[in-house]
């Protein structure tokens, strides 16, 4: 076969053949078979379904978005309730002392607290432990 063969150079031809008058007989054979085949009638809603589909699509979209919006609102409210109700005071204090960023209002509150006598109960620490801690950080030598 020549090396420069291109399919486009080949004339298109159907090499397959059918028996004589095959296409004259085929419709009758098929019609004969359809007589016993039955057919599936369209359901009663089929005619209305296409226009209904077009109308329902935007409606469904609005409905889904609405449901998502309200579900989201409820979730947020629930989440706040859970946060406030379920957490121990001690945990809140620990969190605040570790992570909270102090603001000027906090310092103002600190001032009111500092005017009061701080009991060991308020500090939640024994006097021995407090002394050891001060010694460790050498806080007693720092000038403020």
């Amino acid at each position: 076969m020549k090396d420069d063969f291109k399919l486009s150079d080949l004339p298109k031809r159907n090499i397959y053949e059918v028996p004589e008058k095959y296409f004259d007989r085929l419709p009758a054979q098929i019609m004969e078979r359809t007589a016993g085949a039955g057919y599936s009638p369209a359901p009663w809603y089929a005619a209305a379904w296409k226009p209904l589909r077009l109308a329902l699509a935007p409606l469904m979209l609005v409905l889904v978005l609405g449901v998502l919006y309200f579900a989201n609102l409820n979730n947020k409210a629930d989440q706040q309730n859970v946060n406030l109700a379920g957490i121990q005071d001690e945990d809140i204090l620990n969190y605040l002392s570790t992570y909270a960023v102090l603001e000027s209002s906090d310092f103002a509150e600190l001032q009111t607290v500092s005017d009061r006598e701080m009991t060991s109960e308020f500090l939640n620490v024994s006097s021995k432990a407090a002394e050891e801690e001060l010694e460790y950080y050498q806080l007693d030598t720092i000038d403020y």
Binding site: Y22, L26, I30, R33, T34, A37, Y39
Partner: peptide, 23 residues
Amino acid sequence: IDHDDADDLTQEVFIKVWKNLEN
């Protein structure tokens, strides 16, 4: 390729069409 197979399948196709054309 084979005529008899093609004949069977063509008839099957039109029977399926008959059954489902309304849908």
